[in-house]
Amino acid sequence: MNATRRGILTAVPIIGAGVLGVGFWRMLSDMRSGAFDPRAIKNPNVGKPIPSFAMPGLPGLGDGFTDAELKAQHRPVLVNFFASWCIPCVAEMPGLRAISRNMPIWGIAYEDKPENASAFIQRDGSPYARVASDRHGRVAIDWGVTGVPESFLVAPGGRIIWHGSAALDPQIYEAEIRPRLAGL
């Protein structure tokens, strides 16, 4: 009895180390396949209605928009937070223009001088159907945005059904956004 108990106790460390080891191995292999990202931040607002806001527009690009206008849309809308000072946002623009042929994209300029943001999106043709300015980043906080670019898919009625924090391109659109549009 005594010896068995001792045997069980001495086996505890190897079992514990084994469990940890298997866990680490899964993490590493998932990291290589991209399924596990220790730096990923989950946005808790997916599945919830959009927060309320009212933002001014950018110079020469219309009036901005409010949550009520977004909720009143009959088609799904892709909401994209961007800034002229953000390098991945520059890289994202051609992809956004391609996506804008399939669905409306509404842009929100995050912590950016309105004239800079306006010049930035007009340089090669704006992908945005509507643009608004979140000058001090306060609306972004309500959306749970941690940086730019970040995008949200908003269903008619104003529910967020998808969130992405990578620079968008047609591949991501095909893989993640289009299947969700079909379900609406």
């Binding site: 931040i41 808790p44 906080i141 309500d142 749970g144």
Partner: peptide, 8 residues
């Protein structure tokens, strides 16, 4: 804060 950014 948790409502916007989650438990994280």
């Amino acid at each position: 804060m948790t409502e916007r950014y989650g438990e994280f």
